[in-house]
Nucleic acid binder design. Sequence first.
DNA 1: AAACAGGACAACTTTTTTATTGATTTGGAT
DNA 2: ATCCAAATCAATAAAAAAGTTGTCCTGTTT
Lengths: 231, 231
Amino acid sequence: MKTILEADNDFICDIQAPCFQMLSEQEVELVRASKTQVLFRKGDNLTKQGAFASYILFVINGLAKQYIEGDNTKNYNLRIIKPGEFVGLSAVFTKNTFNYSSIALTDCQVFLIEKDTIANVVKQNGMFGFTIIKRYCEQNANLFDTLRNVLYKQMNGRIADTLLYIDGLKTENAEVFQLLSRKDIADFAGISTESAVKLLKSFERDGLIELNEKDILILNSNALLEISKRG
Amino acid sequence: MKTILEADNDFICDIQAPCFQMLSEQEVELVRASKTQVLFRKGDNLTKQGAFASYILFVINGLAKQYIEGDNTKNYNLRIIKPGEFVGLSAVFTKNTFNYSSIALTDCQVFLIEKDTIANVVKQNGMFGFTIIKRYCEQNANLFDTLRNVLYKQMNGRIADTLLYIDGLKTENAEVFQLLSRKDIADFAGISTESAVKLLKSFERDGLIELNEKDILILNSNALLEISKRG
DNA sequence: AAACAGGACAACTTTTTTATTGATTTGGAT
DNA sequence: ATCCAAATCAATAAAAAAGTTGTCCTGTTT
């Protein structure tokens, strides 16, 4: 008997995502043979910082949150992982362990591909390798932005940044703010929850944003951009 | 700078657990070289059903819960994982993926050992292999009990079983019941949460147990044993 | 030294989750 | 057809978590 978890496996995850289109029949077969599909429930960890990474993850649908864990309970949120994105790319080429954790914000269909398989396909297929490298570089560039953010900006700039970033996801995922608590937002900005709450209220008072329960509407993105730039 | 996550790594996890005592200097070195230590926070997944398993986990301290995921939201709890126990033994020898999920009930210091390493050490050291097999068999035997439970017993028997099982953990972990919700208990017994609540109350009325907030005191274990046997 | 950014703490409110209870339904066994 | 075990549903209560706000403390900047 097939459980729901396995059902329609072939149907759902036949490798239709754009980035797999450039693979040859034989290469697709390689990937298909080594992959496994998993339903991560809301709240499940997709990756755990420090755990061995023998595979990469490719998110088919659902949203997840990638973060680094510090001491005690201080996490820093790095990004929202969207459908069509990879998690754990660095595991393939260098590091043997995940250097961040990630957790499902909604149920996520994900498939896992063993790193040897990806490595082999990359070696065979330059074009595929190219897109992988490109993605990896993008993530890397974002890391630099993040670092700059933390190093040089203060509260206002950071939270403005955070709001603009998350707002950018709203086109594809209108409900994204509903999935995030004030603590989540604070952890994106790298400030305390209380400070985040206060800043949001003050932005609202200044007419920059509007708070509807958990949803946040950006009223004046130029001003926010300005605040973000000013730091 | 060392983060708390890494600090005292060598100190905490030098392989002092009984089951590693029988390893030679050189074998310990093998394990030490391939292992990584991770702090799983309360609520983190130690394993995810269906994900690739390239390592086994050894719990140093903390408690976790192992369960199988069904369709929708129906989970079945298999066991409480205690310090000194392995998770994912089957990954080493046969299956390439975890066939259950597990989640930390408290913060857990765990170390992860790559499966190749364990396999090699087992091949070298018969005595170590023996204890690994022994543990594996124990887990297996418990699985049969579980199966029998599900197949042949009804509510009363199942919840009596569950209570006796969890109560057995109280000697080492007095607070174990505090870590479990009524849903957790229901998922151990494989019944609905509401039924679990009602049965617990009825057991209390009959003087078999005493409910103090989340803690449960067994007053008449013989009667519970009887109920468990009767099924 | 004064001003400021921002975290920590405490008190409190609101929201969400968990627990509880009774009523109703379902699907087998008898 | 009837009885029973047990799930489901619905309403409510209780507990826990999240959000909010004000005050205070600390380390920097000017």
